[in-house]
Nucleic acid binder design. Structure first.
Lengths: 219, 219
DNA sequence: CTAAAAATTTAGACTAGTCTAAATTTGAGA
DNA sequence: TCTCAAATTTAGACTAGTCTAAATTTTTAG
């Protein structure tokens, strides 16, 4: 089996490879894990020895098939636990991250299978992120960023990119959540802000920082 | 906060102090934790530095008030998770120990409070052991060992002492579980075995090994 | 193309937790 | 009460993971 630390590195490499390029740099990982580049180098060597990453000195890393599978499984566990915390234990969506970071390392396939069953096989977590299947497949989501939406169409919020407490609390305050429906009333080139109107609700001006952290689907 | 390892030592010292004497020896701990006496000595020094145990070289240890509180809290978490695993996720009572050993170290008071609420404030775990209250109080149970019972009274099984897979599976096989009702039909001095009859069920001969690992209450 | 900056790796050290083997202390029985 | 076996502790070593500081490689800008 793999240590918490190893799992965290694999998870972060997976995340960065997903959003950035295929090859991930030492500094990116160090920054994401709030650790030092030298520590990252040490760990990359170890992961390479175990055939979990492809690593070439000074050239960054990518996950091997094996490393990918472990990383995705950690993500699966993290997201299933988040569903449990919100749906079953009534946590708010801004309170679950730290606890899920711990729970994701519990080792028991039986536990995760049964949790999945108990939760009725959820496909997304409380932030709208897809829950990987047992076989490692990650359901694809054809959402777009709210910032890329056009005016006078009805969109449904599908996912939030930034899972930080402050962002989620901001959304709570303005009654925006997963499945909220809204239209873009106006877009302002000046600062890339926009006015959106929640269907049956209030209007609100969203900064570019906000609209680039919310995914939506055309209704 | 305290490490998994520290919590495990405190938990084991608590357990041993409960069943044995107040003062616990290095070897007892080493044996319980499947580690070496020298490792135990090292850890005892550290725990003593942190004022979690009273430790005098060559004299054994006892928990301080502070150590006791932490130990009992770990036990509380362990037992609440066991209830969750059996009641909610439908694990069998012989499958929960290893997973609960991991879950008991998750750090989040909110999580345990909400789990407790979700489970409707259970007072005993799936093996009949009392679940410590949040304040550290452990509900007292005036059960006796089945081996100490007398013939022709009706008893109700309240707790099993040995939580090993093999013992629990043995009880399953013979349809003995928490809350089973039975009478002692006969006791045999020869080997301290006894014949018991399950109310509305079959009769069975139990060895002394079995009857000294089952607690019962007079109905 | 080259010098400086940025990124990365190496060297060496530290902590937590563990181990083996040797030394010390305890305590039980003659 | 003395001796010796058992229990315990100490000394020193090892691993995983981390760090700082120095060295090296890569990249960038002129």
């Amino acid at each position: 089996m793999f240590s918490h630390s190893e799992e965290n590195y694999l998870k972060v490499i997976h995340k960065l490879a997903f959003s950035n390029s295929k090859n991930v740099s030492t500094n990116l990982i160090a920054n994401e894990l709030q650790t030092k580049a030298s520590s990252v180098t040490d760990m990359l060597k170890k992961l390479a020895d175990k055939k979990l990453v492809n690593y070439e000195k000074y050239r960054g890393v990518s996950l091997t098939k094996k490393g990918e599978l472990i990383a995705v499984n950690v993500v699966r566990k993290h997201r299933l636990w988040e569903v449990f915390l919100v749906d079953t234990l009534k946590f708010n969506w801004d309170e679950v991250h730290d606890v899920a970071e711990q729970l994701e390392h519990i080792k028991s396939d039986q536990l995760i299978d049964r949790l999945d069953t108990f939760l009725n096989y959820p496909t997304i977590d409380p932030h709208g992120d897809p829950i990987p299947k047992k076989n490692g497949e990650i359901p694809f989501n054809n959402s777009i960023l709210l910032s890329e939406g056009i005016t006078n169409k009805i969109y449904k919020v599908s996912c939030v990119k930034d899972n930080s407490k402050s962002f989620l609390q901001f959304l709570d305050k303005h009654e925006i959540t997963i499945n909220s429906e809204l239209t873009i009333v106006d877009k302002f080139d000046f600062d890339d802000s926009m006015t959106v109107k929640l269907i049956g609700g209030h209007s609100i001006i969203l900064s570019n920082k906000v609209s680039t952290n919310v995914f939506v689907n055309l209704k």
